[in-house]
Design a binder for these strands. Structure first.
Length: 253
DNA sequence: AACTCGGTCAACCGCCCAAAA
DNA sequence: ATTTTGGGCGGTTGACCGAGT
């Protein structure tokens, strides 16, 4: 586990990328496509780690990157998504076409976190401020880029966790739980539990990425079971009705 | 003019996870 | 089944900038 995408000390270089380096990387990707980042410094003159190349491409050189001021609409969305998802920057960025997780993370840390604390940050990105490595003009982003969030895959949940499986199913298919409950004269504890969950959190979908790891899922379930506020933020949308409606439109799921 | 300070953000680190070997 | 590799993520660092003194 020692050599991680070629980030050895001799290659590491915490210096701004030069236009020439950018061009080498762009040319390489034009020919070979994205991926195989570790090969780049073997096949080119670029003395950058694979990780560094990947980051430079994803956060700066990609043609669909949107640069410049974050609009009020975007800001509002970031705030609401952060309430829902916490510091899951890549998921948040996935909702904002052309924006990168790094940009949103920086924006949050420098601007929005202060707003959230009731402070008054200065206006971001003073127009006069020239970024140290801003050699690339902003390119219009693809605003039609498909943004995808999958719902949780219940098949991930082992049978040994039946009570929670039912609870999670209740999130995903609340109506079916109600229907089942009607049919079943004698309700099991699990069904009762699930009904309580549905009643408590009026949610149509569990908005977790399909990539959500099992451990993350169970952590959320535990929090949910404990009825913590954090869990209701993460699992339930009722607390944010405006956002809830928006998120639950089919285009978004 | 020179220096300090705080804000911004690109770049890197360390950890994690999934796929491949 | 285990180890290695590649890639992704959130957190942190540090260079650079303008403003203030």
């Amino acid at each position: 586990m020692s050599s991680r995408i070629g980030c050895s000390k001799e290659v590491m270089n915490r210096v701004a990328w030069s236009p020439l380096e950018d061009q080498i990387l762009i040319d390489y990707i034009k020919i070979h496509g994205e991926g195989k980042w570790a090969n780049i410094n073997k096949k080119t003159a670029l003395k950058r780690s694979g990780k560094s190349c990947r980051l430079r491409w994803l956060n700066y050189l990609r043609p669909d990157i949107k640069r410049g001021n974050i609009s009020l609409e975007e800001e509002d969305l970031i705030i609401r998504l952060h309430k829902l998802l916490g510091n899951r920057w890549s998921l948040i960025a996935g909702r904002l076409p052309g924006r990168t997780d790094n940009e949103i993370k920086n924006y949050w840390n420098t601007i929005l976190s202060k707003k959230a604390r009731g402070e008054h940050p200065k206006q971001p990105k003073d127009a006069k401020m020239i970024k140290k490595n801003d050699i690339k003009s902003s390119s219009p982003a693809e605003t039609s880029g498909a943004i995808k969030t999958n719902t949780l895959n219940l098949s991930k949940i082992p049978d040994t966790q039946q009570p929670l499986k039912v609870a999670a199913d209740a999130f995903l298919h609340p109506q079916s739980v109600h229907d089942n409950a009607k049919v079943e004269e004698q309700k099991s504890d699990e069904i009762q539990h699930a009904q309580n969950l549905v009643k408590e959190f009026n949610v149509g979908e569990l908005l977790l990425s399909d990539d959500t790891s099992d451990s993350e899922f169970w952590k959320l379930c535990d929090q949910f079971e404990n009825g913590t506020e954090e869990a209701s933020h993460a699992l339930g949308l009722g607390q944010y009705p405006l956002f809830s409606e928006e998120m639950l439109t089919t285009d978004w799921i």
